[in-house]
Amino acid sequence: MKLNVNGKTQDIDVESDTPLLWVLREQLGLTGTKYGCGISMCGACTVHIDGVAQRSCVLPVSAVREDQKITTIEGLGVQQFHPVQDVWAEIDVPQCGYCQSGMIMAASSLLAQNSDPSDDDIRRGMGNICRCGTYPRVIEGIKKAAKQLRANAESGGQDANA
C-alpha cells in the first residue's frame, strides 16, 4: 500500500482497517497528529486530504488513495510557517497544545475555503474540542491569519495553503 504524505510517497504495511491516524503516528513517526477520542468527535487527529480537513482517527487507511495528498501538521509549513502557525505563535494561542495541531489544520482548511470568515463562520466551522479553553484566541487567530492570507494574495504572494 502506498500513501502520499507531506509530498512524499511512502510504502505502508498495515492491515487495511488501520485508521490513518495510527499509520501516521506509528508507521511514519508523524506524532504531531493526536489521538483524542477515536470516534471523530474532538478533532485532535485532523489532517488535510487534498487540502480539506479530515479526521483521521476513524478513516481506514484503505479508504485513502495513493493519488490523494495527505498533509499533517509537520507538512503544513515546511519552508516557512503557514500564516495560521505564525499567528498562533504571535498571540500565544496554545495552552497545553495537545489539540492545537488539529485546531491549526482545521483553521487552515477553513481559511482555504473562506478567506474572510465572520465570527459565526468560525464558530460553525470549527468543531475541534479544546479543554484548556483556547477558543477566544482561536477565533482571534483565525481572523488575524485571514487578514494576513488576504494581504499575501493581494501582494501576489503565493498561497501558503498546503
Binding site: 493526536k34 489521538y35 501538521i73 505563535a89 500565544d92 497544545g97 492545537q100
Partner: peptide, 21 residues
C-alpha cells in the same frame, strides 16, 4: 511576555507522553 514553549506546539514537534518512542 510570550510563552517560552509555543513554537513546538504549533509545528507538531512537541513530544508528549503518548508521542514518545
Amino acid at each position: 511576555l510570550k510563552r517560552l514553549d509555543t513554537k513546538e506546539k504549533v509545528d507538531g514537534s512537541m513530544v508528549y507522553t503518548s508521542d514518545l518512542t
